[in-house]
Nucleic acid binder design. Sequence first.
DNA 1: TTAGTGATATCC
DNA 2: GATATCACTAAA
Length: 171
Amino acid sequence: MVRLDGTFFHRDCLEVAPDLVGKVICRRLPDGTILQERIAETEAYRGTEDLACHASKGRTPRTELLYRESGVIYVYLCYGMHWLMNVITGEPEQPQGVLIRAGEVHSGPAKLTRYLQIDRSFNGGSFVTHPDLWIADDGFRPALRTDVRVGIDYAGEYWKNRPWRWIADKG
DNA sequence: TTAGTGATATCC
DNA sequence: GATATCACTAAA
């Protein structure tokens, strides 16, 4: 198991998102327990022109993290009760990131963060340096398939139909 | 299909 | 200060 470093995340989100599927997300709890789960699904959000990307709404305190350096952890609350976790990718000042959409065991972005006990306290940290949250490569390379992104009907026909969701193929 | 929940942005 | 919106989930 090798922890992913800055060079892994320092690429376009359209490269990082498929590469993240099959990687192992690791979380050390306060009592020392280490949780691990393989990533089964990711989505890419790319730039201000991508109407599904939060940065398309403008640069605000909330979206500021998208402009930070790759590897930064972006966690936000959705529908008042669900924490969603992203990793920032690409060049600083170019807002883009990858949503960790599901694990092998816990399907659904909010189920995964609930299992891993991730909340806003991780927002602004980094997958490269955080002592209790990181992503590792154990050499496994799953077969992938793609699909459109979920829950972005508001983004218009073009962006809604980008095949920017990557899913580990079963079997 | 719908309720539940609260941060965020936008409009007074 | 008020309101509308939202990268979701569970129950029915």
